[in-house]
C-alpha cells in the first residue's frame, strides 16, 4: 500500500529525513516510534504530501505521490490533483484539528459532500453510522469545544473514515489526551485495525504497538534505525540507540 524509497526532506536546508525506505503492505499496521525530532511526524506528512519531499520516491496504492515522473524528471502536480489522491488517505492529528465552527456531524459530512459530491442525506446517514461505531452517536449535535479530548479524537477518526480511505495515518493520536482518555481512542483504533484497515501510526503507546502493530519501526535523527516484529524489537532491540530510547520510555 505504501512504498517509500530514499525519502529525503529538508526544512530550510536542515535535513530532517535522510533517506528513508519503508514498506507498508495492504491490511497491515505499521507503528513508528522514536524520540521527538526524529522525523517520524514529518515522514507521516510526506505520505499524503502535506509536506513536499526533496528527494526519493513515495508511492501510495502504486501511485507516485505529489509528482509525475517524465523522462527521469519529477514534475510537481497541481494542488487539485494532489487533493484527489489525499481523498484515499485519511489522517488523524495529535491536536484533533476538528473544525470548531461545525458540529460533530457537520465535521464528518463536510468532505463527503464538498469533495465527493455525495447527497446530504446519504452523507448524514453514513456519518451517523460512523459516530455509532466510535460510540458518539448521542453527541452528533455537539460542537468540538463541548467534547472531551478523547471524544474529539474519536470524531476526528470518524471524519477521516467518512472519505472511505484505503490508508489511515495517525500522528501521535493520544499524545494530547489526559491519561484516562487514551484508552477510548486506542480502542477505536484497535477495532479499525481488526477490520483490516492499513494503518501507519506514529505513537508513544508501546503497549498498543506490541498488541496491534504488525511491524514496528524505530526512527532516530531522520533515519530508520531498526524495524521488525513489535514483540521482537521491544523485547530484544538489536541497535544501541533503540535500547537507549526504550530504556528511557519504559
Amino acid at each position: 500500500m505504501v512504498r517509500i524509497r530514499g525519502l529525503v526532506k529538508r526544512f530550510a536546508g536542515r535535513e530532517v529525513l535522510s533517506g528513508i525506505d519503508l514498506d507498508v503492505p495492504a491490511g497491515s499496521v505499521m507503528c513508528i516510534i522514536g524520540p521527538s525530532g526524529s522525523g517520524k511526524s514529518t515522514l507521516l506528512s510526506c505520505i499524503n504530501h502535506l509536506e513536499r519531499i526533496d528527494g526519493g520516491r513515495l508511492w501510495v496504492g502504486g501511485e507516485l505521490v505529489g509528482y509525475r515522473e517524465y523522462k527521469g524528471r519529477l514534475y510537481e502536480l497541481p494542488e487539485r490533483q494532489i487533493a484527489g489522491m489525499r481523498q484515499k488517505v485519511g489522517m488523524v492529528f495529535q491536536h484533533f484539528n476538528l473544525f470548531p465552527h461545525m458540529t460533530a456531524l457537520q465535521n464528518i459530512i463536510e468532505a463527503p459532500i464538498r469533495v465527493k459530491g455525495e447527497p446530504a442525506a446519504t452523507a448524514k446517514r453514513r456519518a451517523m453510522a460512523l459516530l455509532e461505531r466510535v460510540g458518539l452517536a448521542a453527541k452528533h449535535a455537539s460542537f468540538p469545544a463541548q467534547l472531551s479530548g478523547g471524544e474529539q479524537q474519536r470524531v476526528a477518526i470518524a471524519r477521516a473514515l467518512a472519505m472511505e480511505p484505503q490508508l489511515m495515518l495517525f500522528d501521535e493520536p493520544t499524545s494530547a489526551l489526559d491519561p484516562e482518555l487514551v484508552g477510548e481512542v486506542l480502542a477505536v483504533m484497535k477495532d479499525l485495525a481488526r477490520s483490516g484497515m492499513t494503518m501507519v501510526v506514529v505513537t508513544h503507546e508501546l503497549a498498543f504497538a506490541r498488541e496491534v502493530g504488525d511491524e514496528l519501526t524505530f526512527m532516530d535523527a531522520g533515519l530508520v534505525v531498526e524495524r521488525g516484529r513489535p514483540r521482537d524489537v521491544l523485547a530484544a532491540p538489536q541497535e544501541a540507540r533503540t535500547r537507549d530510547f526504550l530504556s528511557r520510555v519504559l
Binding site: N48, L50, E79, R80, A83, G84, M85, R86, Q87, V89, G90, M91, F93, H95, N97, L98, F99, E110, A111, R114, V115, A156, R159, A160, M163, L169
Partner: peptide, 12 residues
C-alpha cells in the same frame, strides 16, 4: 492545523 486537516480530507 485547520488547513492541514482540510487538505488531508482532499479538499481543494
Amino acid at each position: 492545523g485547520q488547513t492541514r486537516a482540510a487538505k488531508a480530507l482532499g479538499m481543494r
